[in-house]
């Protein structure tokens, strides 16, 4: 163990971990909010809404996250005068914000696909039963379909959170000092390969904790579906 390097860069790596978690939590939350209208648009009767949401999901699911980050971060620089005119340049100048924006759009597309699959997986009988009870379409969606869809979506959503933790490491390439960014900095200063292994351990711990917590959550939320 290289104790000197650990004393210097250990605390900074933990700070980097906090940045990583911020990126993930903000993007996943905003992405979840975004995914609901997108999933609904994808299943709507309007052909235009369907086409727009399909194009959005296809683009963000079919291209690499790193290319998307470059597109937003470097691409925004090209529209500097326009962004300044509408007073948003200070946001797009910030690499952290650009990453949050890109990650949100990316995970929103994936979450919308998960949600769409889950909504379609709710048996049609549920909807028909609700209709025969005289519930209105909005009530059916909110009280019958959505609660069941979310349970179905729980497992893939957990995977998506883990993918986001791993994917967020590309933020390091556009100068955000997340865990990966600090690790690269530490390596460029010390040339000690160990720092990458410490980062690996930290990432593994985070992913494992999320996995376990998610398992517990799923176990708890589906307790009414298990026979004693």
């Amino acid at each position: 163990m290289n104790w000197d390097a650990l004393a210097t860069y250990g605390p900074r790596m933990l700070q980097g971990l906090v940045v990583t978690l911020q990126l993930v939590v903000i993007s996943i939350t905003l992405g979840a909010l975004l995914s609901i209208p997108v999933a609904l648009a994808r299943m709507s009767r309007s052909r235009i809404l369907r086409a727009v949401s399909f194009g959005y999901m296809y683009f963000f699911r079919g291209t690499p996250l790193l290319a998307q980050v470059f597109l937003v971060y470097y691409g925004a620089g090209q529209f500097r005068t326009q962004l300044e005119a509408i007073g948003l340049w200070w946001l797009f100048r910030d690499a952290f914000f650009c990453c949050v924006l890109t990650f949100t759009l990316n995970t929103g597309a994936y979450q919308a696909e998960i949600l769409r699959g889950a909504i379609r997986a709710v048996p049609a009988g549920q909807r028909e039963a609700a209709m025969s009870l005289g519930l209105r379409p909005r009530q059916i969606f909110r009280k019958i379909v959505m609660p069941q869809a979310i349970l179905i979506a729980l497992r893939p959503l957990g995977n998506e959170v883990i993918l986001m933790v791993k994917g967020s490491s590309v933020a390091a390439i556009v100068t955000v000092f997340d865990l990966m960014g600090v690790t690269r900095l530490a390596y460029s200063r010390t040339f000690d390969f160990q720092v990458y292994l410490w980062a690996a351990v930290l990432y593994l711990v985070v992913v494992e904790i999320i996995r376990r917590v998610w398992d517990k959550l799923e176990h708890r939320l589906t307790r009414h579906m298990r026979s004693a």
Partner: peptide, 13 residues
């Protein structure tokens, strides 16, 4: 569990 980017760095360096 590891980010792909980190795996690439670990294998490369």
């Amino acid at each position: 569990g590891l980010p792909e980017l980190l795996t690439i760095f670990i294998v490369y360096f």
